[in-house]
Design a protein around this nucleic acid. Structure first.
Lengths: 369, 369
DNA sequence: GTCTGGCACTCTCTTTTCAAGAGTGCTAAA
DNA sequence: TTTAGCACTCTTGAAAAGAGAGTGCCAGAC
C-alpha cells in the first residue's frame, strides 16, 4: 500500500521527531495538525503516520497512544532531515572565552569541555584525555627538592605528556646532587620506551658489584619504570565524564513526566549512573571513534551493548592527527536534540584540536576572544 | 510516667537501632522479642517503646507502624550505646597495601581514600585536598622544554604544593635559556606570597624603559601570579567525592524497599546528587571539621542546612597539624552503620595523616604491608 | 484516487471500594 | 511490674468502574 517515503511523509516524520524531542510525549495526529497548522485533516495525518509505521520509522506503544520515533526514524532524521546548524556565534565566543581563561592547563581543558558539552546538550558528556598512538617515549626528568628528604620528580615524555611523583630520598641531597642525577638519567633514558627502561634496570641489577648506577640513581630509574608502566596500563581506561545531573533532569528519568512506573525510572537512573561511572557500553565506541573522521552518531540499538539500547551517543575525535588524539562526546536518551548536540560536539572537538595543535605546532594559534 | 532511660530501655533502643539500620524497616515489638530472644513479652517491649518515644528517642510514622529512631536516638546511640570497634586487621592491611601501591602520588591518595571510604561505609564519601592554613608561599620554578616553542612550568610552593602549566614561548629558547630564567625567577620570588609577586610585577611595569626583567621573564612572572591567584581562589571550594552508586544502592533510594511513593525516592536521589556535586549542605561542616579534633558526627537535623535533614555526615580532619590539613568523611542517610563508618573514617584519616607526615618529616614512616 | 468526517474500539489512567494484615494502645488480670 | 487479649488504626494490594485519549477504518465528498 505504501508508496515509499514521499515528501509529505518526510515532513511529517520530521515534525513528529521535533515534537517528541521537545515534549517527551507520544505525538498524536491532532497535535501535529493544530501545532504546525498543517492544512490537512487529522485523519489524513493518521494515514501517513500508519504508513511511516509500516516503513519502520515510527512505533506505537499501544493501540491508543501517539507515535514515537524508532531508531531507524532517528537515523533517517539525522542523515537527511535535520537542519545542519552551528552553535550561535555569541555562544561560540563565550565558550572560547572560557577556554582562554584556563589556557595552559590541559586537565582544565578536559574538565571544561565536559562541562560545556553537558550544558549545551543538556545531557551527560564524556571526554578521554588525548593520547599518543605510539608507545610512551621518555624525554627527560627534573628533580625538585620539596624539603630535605623529599623530592618531586617531574617526568616529561614525548608528546608533551607529563607526570609528577614525589620521591622519598634515602639521604639528604643537595640541589646540585639532584640536578646532576636528573641530568644523568635524562641522558641515559632519552627516547627510550618502557621495555628498554626495564631491560636497563635488570641488566644493571645482574652485574651486582660493579653497578653502573648509584643507589639513588637506581631509585629514580625504578620510579620512572613504575610511572611508565602505570601510565600505559591506564591509558585506555580513563574516561572523564560530567553532566550526570543534566541527563537525569531529562523527562525519561522523572516518573511524573515519563508517565510510567516510577520503579522503572529509578532503575534506569541507576543503570545510567553505572554506564557513566564504569564506561561500560562505551568501551567499543571509543576506539571506533578514534579511527573515524567527523562526528559519529550511534543511535540506541545500533550500539551492540544491550544496556545502551535506550541511549544515543555522539562522539568526535579531537587532537592532532598522527600525534595525540582523544575522543569527546555526549550521551543521553535516544530522544535527544540531535542538531544541537552534534553542533556542540563538532565545535568543542575542533576547539580542543586547535588548543592541542598549539601545543604541537606554533604555527597554529588559539583563537582569542 | 517514664522514669528516665533505664538500663533495659537503653538495651532496647540499641536493638531498635541495630535492627532498623540492618533492615531499613520500622521495628515492631514482636520482631525484637523473636529475633533477639528477649525473655519478656511483646507487650512489655511495647510499653518500653512507648516510653522511649515519649523521651524523644523514637518515633512513629503512623499509628500501626513499627518504631524508627529519631536524630536524638541516633545521637544517644553514637555517644553511649555503640560498640567502639576498629576495622579488622586484614581489612586494614588490605587498605594499607592499596595505598602503598600508589605511593608518591597525592592525587591518587585522595581518590583512593574516597573510594575506600565509599566501599567500607557503603555510602558516599568526600575528601578535600590537604591545604595549608597559611597563605601560599612561592618556593621555586622549573622550566622544562616540551618542544621548541612550548615549555612546561612546574611551580613548587612551600608545603609541597605543586602546580604545572604549559607556557607558549615567544621565541625559540635553548634549555640553557630556560634554566637561567627559572633560576633567576626562583631566586627573586623565593618565599614571596601572592601580594608580593603582584607588587613586583606592577613596580616593574611602571619603570617602563629600564625594566628589571626581560620579556620572557616577565611572561613567566605573570604566569606565576596567575597560577597563585587561581590556586588560592579555588582553595576552599574543591571537594572530591565518590561512592554515589554505593549510597544510591541504599534502600532509601529504592522505592520497592522504601515502601513509599517512588516519586519521592527519585526526588531524593536527585537532591542527593546535587548535594554531592555542589557541596552545598557541607560547606559549613568542613571548616568546622578542620577546626576540631577527632571524628565529627553530624546527624540529620543537627546540620543547619535543611536539605541535609535526612542525612548524616561523618568527618575527620587529616594531615599534619599546623602545616597542611584536609577533611575526609562519609555521607549517607541518617540510617547508617555508624560504628563501621566511624571506624573507617578514623582509620583512613590516620593513614592519610601518616602519609602526609612522611612528606613533611622523614622521621615518620609509611607502614609497609 | 485522495481526502475527510464520523464513530467504534482499545488501552491507559485515575479513583473508589473492599478485604486482609500488621502493629499498636489499652485494659484487666496475674 | 508484667502479660494476655482485643479493639482500633493505618497501610497495602487487588479489583472494578468510569473517564479520556487516540487510533483504525469505513463510507461519502471532492
Amino acid at each position: 500500500m505504501s508508496s515509499g517515503l514521499t515528501e509529505r511523509r518526510q515532513t511529517i516524520l520530521k515534525l513528529v521527531i521535533q515534537e517528541f524531542v521537545e515534549t517527551a510525549q507520544p505525538v498524536a495526529s491532532e497535535t501535529l495538525v493544530r501545532k504546525y497548522r498543517l492544512n490537512v485533516s487529522p485523519a489524513t495525518v493518521r494515514n501517513e503516520l500508519a504508513a511511516l509505521e509500516e516503513l519502520g520509522y515510527l512505533t506505537h506503544l499501544h493501540t491508543s497512544a501517539g507515535r514515537v520515533p524508532t531508531d531507524i526514524g532517528y537515523r533517517f532524521f539525522v542523515e537527511n532531515l535535520m537542519d545542519r546548524t552551528s552553535l550561535s556565534l555569541p555562544e561560540q565566543r563565550m565558550i572560547r572565552h572560557q577556554f582562554y581563561q584556563v589556557r595552559g592547563e590541559l586537565d582544565q581543558w578536559i574538565q571544561l569541555a565536559g562541562s560545556v558539552l553537558a550544558r549545551t546538550a543538556q545531557n551527560a558528556s564524556v571526554v578521554t584525555p588525548p593520547r599518543s598512538a605510539d608507545r610512551l617515549r621518555f624525554r627527560q626528568v627534573e628533580l625538585v627538592a620539596i624539603h630535605d628528604t623529599m623530592a618531586l620528580a617531574v617526568l616529561v615524555f614525548h608528546g608533551g605528556v607529563v607526570k609528577q611523583q614525589t620521591l622519598a630520598l634515602d639521604a639528604v641531597r643537595s640541589p646540585d646532587d639532584l640536578r646532576r642525577c636528573a641530568a644523568r638519567i635524562s641522558s641515559v633514558l632519552a627516547d627510550l620506551e618502557l621495555g628498554d627502561v626495564e631491560d636497563l634496570l635488570t641488566r644493571d641489577q645482574q652485574q651486582e658489584g660493579s653497578a653502573e648506577f648509584g643507589d639513588f640513581e637506581r631509585q629514580v630509574l625504578d620510579l620512572v619504570a613504575r610511572a611508565m608502566d602505570a601510565f600505559e596500563a591506564q591509558a585506555q581506561e580513563q574516561i572523564y565524564s560530567d553532566g550526570l545531573i543534566e541527563m537525569l533532569s531529562q523527562p525519561e528519568f522523572i516518573p511524573a513526566l515519563a508517565r510510567e512506573d516510577a520503579e522503572r525510572a529509578v532503575e534506569r537512573m541507576r543503570r545510567a549512573l553505572d554506564i557513566l561511572k564504569s564506561g561500560r557500553g562505551l568501551g567499543l565506541l571509543i576506539p571506533q571513534a578514534l579511527a573515524s573522521d567527523g562526528v559519529q552518531v550511534i543511535i540506541g540499538g545500533e550500539n551492540s551493548a544491550d544496556e545502551m539500547r535506550e541511549y544515543s551517543v555522539i562522539l568526535a575525535r579531537y587532537g592532532v592527527e598522527r600525534a595525540v588524539t582523544g575522543v569527546l562526546g555526549v550521551i543521553g536518551p535516544t530522544r535527544m536534540a540531535y542538531p544541537r548536540s552534534i553542533s556542540s560536539v563538532r565545535y568543542i572537538s575542533s576547539l580542543m584540536s586547535d588548543l592541542l595543535a598549539e601545543l604541537y605546532q606554533a604555527d597554529q594559534r588559539l583563537p582569542e576572544s
